[in-house]
Amino acid sequence: MLPGGTHHAPPFEACPRFTADLQHLTPAQRQRFRRVVLDAFVPDLRTGRPFRPGLRVKGVRCAPGVYELTWAPDGRATWRYGRMVVAGEQHIVWRRIGTHDIFTGP
C-alpha cells in the first residue's frame, strides 16, 4: 500500500475496509495519499509534536480514539494508534480512505 522507496514508514496495518476502499481510488489519488503520508504525516508523527495544520488531523467525534487525516480537498483517511510493535515507532492502523463519504459507515 505505502511505497517503500527511500522513505521509511513506521509500522502500520490496514483494516480490510481500508484495503477495499483503497482499490476504489484512482491511481492519482493513491499516489497523492502516499505522498502526503510519506512527506508530511510520517515526519510529523516522528516529531511527537502536533501535526502541521495543512494535514487537518482531528479526532472523529463519533469514534473515540479514531482520527481523520485530510490528504486532498475531498480526500480523507481514518486511522488510530495501534499497540507499538517496534520500539520507539508509533504503530498506525488505517481504517478507511476515500472522500468525505467514508463517514457515512462504520
Rank of each mutant, 00 (worst) to 15 (best):
M1N: 10
P3E: 11
G4K: 15
G5P: 10
T6G: 15
F12V: 01
E13Y: 02
A14F: 08
A14S: 03
C15M: 13
R17Q: 14
R17C: 01
T19E: 13
D21P: 08
L25K: 00
Q29G: 14
Q29S: 14
Q31T: 07
Q31R: 02
R32F: 01
F33H: 12
F33L: 11
R35G: 03
R35I: 07
V36I: 06
V37M: 02
L38A: 05
D39F: 09
A40T: 05
F41Y: 08
V42T: 10
V42Q: 11
P43N: 00
D44M: 02
D44Q: 06
R46Q: 07
R46F: 01
T47R: 15
R49H: 14
P50K: 15
G54D: 06
G54V: 09
G54M: 14
V57L: 00
V57Q: 00
G59R: 04
A63Q: 12
A63S: 01
A63H: 03
P64E: 04
V66W: 03
Y67H: 15
E68F: 10
E68W: 11
L69P: 05
L69E: 07
L69F: 07
W71F: 08
P73F: 07
P73D: 14
R76M: 12
R76Q: 09
R76N: 11
W79E: 12
W79A: 15
R80Q: 11
G82E: 01
G82I: 01
R83C: 09
M84Y: 04
M84C: 10
V85C: 01
V85H: 01
Q90D: 04
H91D: 11
I92R: 05
I92V: 10
W94R: 10
R95E: 02
R95F: 00
R96Q: 10
I97A: 05
T99I: 07
T99Q: 15
T104Y: 13
T104R: 13
T104C: 08
